[in-house]
Design a protein around this nucleic acid. Structure first.
Lengths: 329, 329
DNA sequence: GTAATAAATGTAATCGATTTCATAACATAA
DNA sequence: TTATGTTATGAAATCGATTACATTTATTAC
């Protein structure tokens, strides 16, 4: 691999001039520019990012923390992040900590080590204290997961309002006994969605029944199956389910199907996230859609602005209720 | 951010000694080691990877080329790649070219630019000529997608045998009219799977009917739906379908369901890949499983071996037929 | 034609680590 | 005590780019 020095020698100029040609700086005579460009071609020279980055003390790499590659929820957000990043000459490094704290430390250190210029975290299990400390010296943005009283800018939706809307939709269809499959409520979004669930019930004078509220430890399809089994064993059986993730909802839907329940008549189901599968279930799944691509795009913009030293404001995005067969007669 | 120089000054030693402490080199007195470690703590020093990598001319970053984040097929492979890589102090950079040749070039240049030490490509739409050229100077491994007559080591399964096995399974169940939903046959794996399909038919003296062979341009659920619609319109209608990807199979399954066909009696379905959702459809999907985690693990090992300068051999892994409800009465 | 100004290019420092080579300090053997 | 070997450390070069500053060359004004 040729270096800038070799190009300079071949073109009969100094390395400074070659650098100026590479970076399109002003003041380089077109005759020398041509000589240099020829030398670059002849030697098939490619500038080393290592040298450049060391000098500029930037890596032009952004870290994106997710919880697990297997979660289809992330893919559109990532597309949004990536499009904006690449358009601005940043690459992204996708990191799934997979609830492995050691690996998470590795990733967080990359930003201290100058191997990454900033972080977008979408990982709900991230160590928020470490992250907050890191945020004092390095640009960090939260996407979709955020924390009250943590001074890190975020982009997210209004989870309380979205859950409220989903549950209200079920009520309007005539359901009064609505189960709620929630994730572990140590996560803010789970608490917020629960608030929305309860607000909708209260608005219609339906009492909250704790027997119908389930908190899962994970978001696998299988957890949804398990919960639906529990639901079907209840004496006073709900006629509808609102799940905080499509994967849970799809598992629940499947189990209801297997048990021969008519959907939505005997069991209506609403999910959350609008993952691509949600349109491929039988029946198709009603779900809350977040503007995922847009959220990713915005998060990337916020991060890059922050890297540039600008101050950024948190964003709340609009959600949408997508009504499909699982709540449609 | 403190530099190694500042640590050296604070500890009253030279930067060379600090470096030796950091890298656990021999010959540093334990008294000075303690002084240096104290200084590192006091200054909260973290070594800059940029400086280190420049000096060592390595980035310890591996590129993983995929076609699109949205494809669930990759996630387990990526887990395998990542586990091995991280255990060997490499990080991975996930790149979806998303059939954007410009972006692909960006990624391939990273290895020329020394921003990455090697590449694992799983992208079937990659520009194989560029990749082959790059492979002459840089470590590259193909995973799951490979090319005959291209001298790049790969890890993959025997696609012909896997398809043969899937189709034979359908025949043994009594099906003689078996449709085949294949991807674009410009891809080697599509040609190989077709060969397997035809071999199974021939073995049982069933003529190949071109009317029952469909080539899709993409792998979306929706394409599977479309094909099943075409199938159901045929006068001489097949009683079974073998699709080369689960996403296609799930689309086909859904459409057959919607049209009220009994599965598997009136329409048996086999997919390929064993994505997690294939166990959540109704009925669940029979599919060919590749040892994905293992393939990723092996691919990473091959790449890192190659980076170390060792020579590596291509690998063919075993597949497995997972029989579920879509072919089970 | 000369001075003043602008444009083009080169020299050398710099980013932050690692490592070769030289040297100092110390220990051991004769 | 001197010679020899070992261990610990430092000085300085190095990786490959960028850039402040210095210098040369070209252009313009009078």
């Amino acid at each position: 691999m040729a270096t800038i020095q070799e190009v300079a020698r071949k073109a009969g100029v100094s390395s400074a001039t070659v650098s100026r040609v590479l970076n399109n700086r002003i003041s380089v005579a077109s005759s020398t520019r041509i000589k240099v460009e020829q030398a670059i071609k002849d030697l098939k020279y490619e500038p080393s990012m290592l040298g450049r980055n060391l000098r500029n003390s930037e890596s032009r790499l952004l870290l994106v923390l997710i919880h697990s590659f297997s979660n289809p929820y992330y893919s559109e957000i990532i597309n949004g992040i990536e499009d904006y990043s690449i358009a601005n000459d940043y690459n992204i490094l996708l990191c799934d900590a997979d609830s492995n704290p050691e690996r998470e430390t590795t990733f967080l250190n990359m930003v201290k080590n100058k191997l990454a210029d900033g972080i977008i975290s979408m990982n709900p299990t991230v160590d928020i204290h470490k992250l907050t400390e890191l945020a004092q010296k390095h640009p960090i943005i939260l996407c979709s997961e955020y924390y009250e009283e943590v001074p890190i800018p975020y982009v997210a939706i209004d989870n309380e309002a979205a859950a409220y809307r989903a549950v209200k939709h079920l009520i309007k269809l005539g359901n009064e006994k609505i189960a709620f499959i929630n994730f572990d409520e140590s996560f803010l979004y789970a608490r917020q969605r629960r608030k929305g669930y309860e607000r909708a019930l209260k608005e219609f004078d339906i009492p909250v029944n704790d027997e119908w509220i389930f908190n899962t430890q994970g978001l696998d399809f299988q957890e949804g199956v398990q919960v639906m089994r529990k639901i079907l064993r209840l004496e006073n059986r709900p006629t509808a389910v609102f799940a905080v993730s499509d994967t849970l909802a799809i598992g629940a839907l499947k189990e209801a199907n297997v048990r021969g329940l008519k959907i939505p008549d005997e069991m209506a189901v609403v999910g959350f996230d609008n993952i691509s599968f949600s349109n491929m279930t039988n029946p198709t799944l009603t779900t809350v859609s977040q503007p995922m691509y847009d959220m990713g795009h915005k998060a990337a913009r916020m991060l890059i602005d922050k890297i540039k030293g600008q101050s950024v404001e948190s964003l709340i995005m609009d959600h949408e209720l997508i009504i499909r067969e699982s709540t449609l007669n």
